[in-house]
Design a protein around this nucleic acid. Sequence first.
DNA 1: TTGAAAGCGCTAACAT
DNA 2: ATGTTAGCGCTTTCAA
Lengths: 332, 332
Amino acid sequence: MRPTIDDVAKTANVSKATVSRYLNGHFERMSAATRDRIAAVVAQLGFVPNRQASALKSRRTHLIGVVVADLANIYSTLLITGINDVTKEAGDQILVAGAGNDLAEEKRVLHLLIGQGVDGIILQPMSQDSHQYDFVRLAGIPMVIVDRDSLPRRHVTVASSDYSASRTLAETVIRAGYKDIIVFANPVQLVSSRMLRYRGFADVGQDHHIPVTLLETHGDSAAEADVSMIGAWLTAHPGHRPAVFTTNGRLLMAALFWMQDQGLQTPRDLGICGYDDWDWARLAGPGITSVNQHPQQIGQKAAEFLYQAVNGTPAPATRIEIPATLDLRHSL
Amino acid sequence: MRPTIDDVAKTANVSKATVSRYLNGHFERMSAATRDRIAAVVAQLGFVPNRQASALKSRRTHLIGVVVADLANIYSTLLITGINDVTKEAGDQILVAGAGNDLAEEKRVLHLLIGQGVDGIILQPMSQDSHQYDFVRLAGIPMVIVDRDSLPRRHVTVASSDYSASRTLAETVIRAGYKDIIVFANPVQLVSSRMLRYRGFADVGQDHHIPVTLLETHGDSAAEADVSMIGAWLTAHPGHRPAVFTTNGRLLMAALFWMQDQGLQTPRDLGICGYDDWDWARLAGPGITSVNQHPQQIGQKAAEFLYQAVNGTPAPATRIEIPATLDLRHSL
DNA sequence: TTGAAAGCGCTAACAT
DNA sequence: ATGTTAGCGCTTTCAA
């Protein structure tokens, strides 16, 4: 069906070894004649070398594994795009997998990736305990962590400047005159970036003696998030006009949907701002003040660090921060 | 480094063949004792079978290739999510690649996928000429086409009901009283789905004697699209209040950004509606009437058809339509 | 400058 | 119920 290196060798009247050299660009001492002859045959036969076979011996699959918490999240899309920018230059391919926000599922797919012999892995980790990933290290597979910390830090970690960006946003909120702040988040203990985003607000609130209320919901999608908690807070505090900060784009959207349903307007009835500005935040209501994490850049950086490790010169396991930027609009 | 089947065999005091049977679930006639012994050793050694090696003999890599026109598009994300829903059940992995909206690049990545020996490919094709993909057929790799037609049809094609959904939307526009319709699109000749979306409007416009103007732009992103064409039309037709239909989500967003910049409001100054409702359309302005293609469903269906072919019983090469749905809001 | 041969880790007849 | 053996398609010494 697909021609093999043997077919090429025979029709070109050379040995497999020579064809292999040709394929790998070892032209140093190969007559131009053979080179051209092989080239012709390769083209004529439409020969595409089988990487499975070559990987067996060369120990390079040219596959980079990417595991994200949730495939459907736009963060993932942009992250993957950034990674792809780099892998494409290297002529490699990416194997993507979603962990479905579940540690066991994440473990399963990591094993699949190891089975596929990926040259390296980029992981948005479900667990903050890096020992969960010891088996990857044991398999000798280079890995770079993105978005969230997993400690003790065993791998280069590329993430946004969650804490400082949150502080900046919190200062902005307070400067706008709000006396109450609500942080609407998924459980903050579980994920380091959420915690940093919350802490940024909590710390700044404390500095200014402004109460910061944490409202945690489990629902991950806009539909599942329990936004009514904000409504409950509002009825419990009549006359107050709080600023709501959401720790990710899905929750931002959930909150906005809910406000729309309730006939609540921003900034008239409450202020709102949050993480993850995928452009649409500019179009919603009067424009929502939001934080852009630049996931594509995070992906690129992560891939660059990964290649350093794949090529045998791993960087020390530190946290690399990509500065998040704040888009000031009119929702505060 | 990673243990091999040989290591397992030796420590369990059995032959590689027995271990292989164990790994592939051929327990039919294997003593429970050996089974358990092997299980123990596998766990103890943290053995993960090397799929490159197994693929070499078994001709199954458990890899499904996915090639989308543009990785960063949300359509791609949702499509990939849908595909992953199905591949995950099969224990397979997906190899994703973006064609960067370029035919040559698409060809390059298709070759990479073939080199990786993928069991099948799902392609959102750059070319409407299916002969461009003959080399994939020649390599004997099952393929399913999504989103766009490529003719003559050689593969099952899964797409949304572009033409009928567009007609429905066009009827809605006309029923709302608009006397002018502008279709804002990327070049329609190049991609079948764009063409169908345009034709839906053009045909309905003709039925009702309503002029439908096609404005084509090359820019693909919201930033690059030349929205000023709409402005030019507006100045050329003072007093008119057209309905603008955009053929994809990026152009919808581009148009909305532009309107925002111009201080134009919908539906006051013009009506607007378009393809690709990724939830945010509900939040923009008064809510934008838009078409949801359900790309995740398209991905699932495509993967199901692909597996039929991979498993030796390919379905006939027909076009399968996933009904697009219309979200009526307040922008018309 | 080129070839021969061994082997990467696994699977699948064919034996036993 | 288990083992032996011969590859799968490449890469890579080592020779020539």
